[in-house]
Design a binder for these strands. Structure first.
Lengths: 217, 217
DNA sequence: GCCTAATTTGTACAACTGTACAAATTAGGC
DNA sequence: GCCTAATTTGTACAGTTGTACAAATTAGGC
């Protein structure tokens, strides 16, 4: 027996799916990357779809738990602007940083989510809708309280843009490097988190700023 | 002979690729959607990769032309903030709206780009890098002039977030509808453009605002 | 109306896909 | 060391894939 072949298969599945999507990766690819036989995959997971489901459940639970934990901390901040910043960090950081220490890290899983979401994979879509919308709703509620008077439409769209930005930062980091002529490193995740939080902060904050602005002028 | 089977094949290729990605769509799917035979695809395009290339080139040229046209108009605006807004619109609108009247529209093609970019398709990646980075660079330069003193890092990352938001708005519009409890229509493209431009405007503007802000306080 | 070139069809091919299952191997309790 | 259950392997299967190419069909100039 192998030292936890099952774990290795799951890990390699995330890696390969995140790199090329669901359809382009065959079970034989995953098996080969794990130094195992195709049959081991049917044995452990039954089918390709069930393997995907297992991958999701493995990462979804700790990531959303971490998000809620950080969200709870953020909500204790009384200053609205500082709280807004903390909430955004609570949403973004767990997606970029390794969720539990052992596995490949939240970033790889998040990237996989991004790719599968784009592929429109029916299996994945159902799981995503179930697992993440609830968390997203809690965040929108928290964000709304930081920007009094902000219309729901603006909040929802900005949360959509936040997720899209998050995804694309992981999907195509090299574009950042290229566009900057090599000055900026698109693979620097700490920088990506910082920039994403700053940019989102400004866009959310502007939803409630209108009054202040016109008052100042 | 069919009334322009070639055109129909290209159109259906965009539709199907944008819906399910490159790998999941077979040449037989495209042929069937066009009421034609598989062989017609090899005849007209030679291979699946060449078909993709043809699709790209067909939409890329008019879309980037339209972008540059609108960018040129925007650059004639003297007020920095109004110019910033116009530049953002020049980038976003052609991606959402039908580029030339005849074909399926820019939105469908942009969605296809988003999906292929996520899939990491090597053929697509090469074409994207060639065709779009130059345009993106021109936009970043224009944006930089609207926000004096803004660091390149912030500009590039925000342009990355802009594209990611744009993509995800087209990839998963239903999430907007779901998260808002049906109040907001994620498929309302005019609203999406408005929200995206507003949100990006705030995030870009904040790059140069720091001085003003601290001066005001 | 004929003839040539362009188009479309049909079919064949090897490679690869997910899945199923028998056989071989291995683990750990006794 | 043995025995049973868990795991891993090997292989077979039907279905699908991109591509190639001969045959059939069609278009448009003459």
């Amino acid at each position: 027996m192998r030292p936890n072949l099952r774990e290795a298969l799951l890990r390699n599945a995330v890696t390969l799916f995140s790199r090329s999507g669901y359809n382009a990766v065959s079970l034989r690819d995953i098996a080969k990357a794990s130094g195992a036989n195709v049959g081991s995959l049917t044995y452990h997971f039954g089918s390709k779809a069930k393997l995907l489901r297992e991958v999701y459940e493995r990462h979804t639970v700790p990531m959303n738990a971490r998000r809620r934990e950080l969200l709870g901390e953020a909500l204790r901040i009384s200053d609205a602007d500082q709280r807004l910043m903390a909430i955004l960090r609570a949403y973004v950081v767990p997606a970029f940083v390794s969720s539990s220490e052992g596995d490949g890290g939240g970033a790889e899983f998040t990237r996989m989510r991004a790719v599968l979401s784009a592929e429109g994979n029916p299996d994945a879509q159902a799981i995503i809708a179930d697992a993440f919308d609830e968390t997203s709703r809690a965040f929108i509620k928290a964000l709304a309280d930081c920007v009094p008077g902000a219309p729901l439409e603006g909040l929802v769209w900005r949360s959509q843009f936040l997720l899209g930005s998050l995804y694309y930062a992981l999907i195509n980091p090299d574009r950042v490097t290229r566009l900057s002529g090599g000055t900026v490193d698109g693979n620097d995740r700490e920088a990506a988190v910082y920039q994403l939080v700053e940019a989102s902060y400004a866009s959310f904050r502007s939803l409630g700023v209108e009054i202040r602005q016109s008052a100042a002028i």
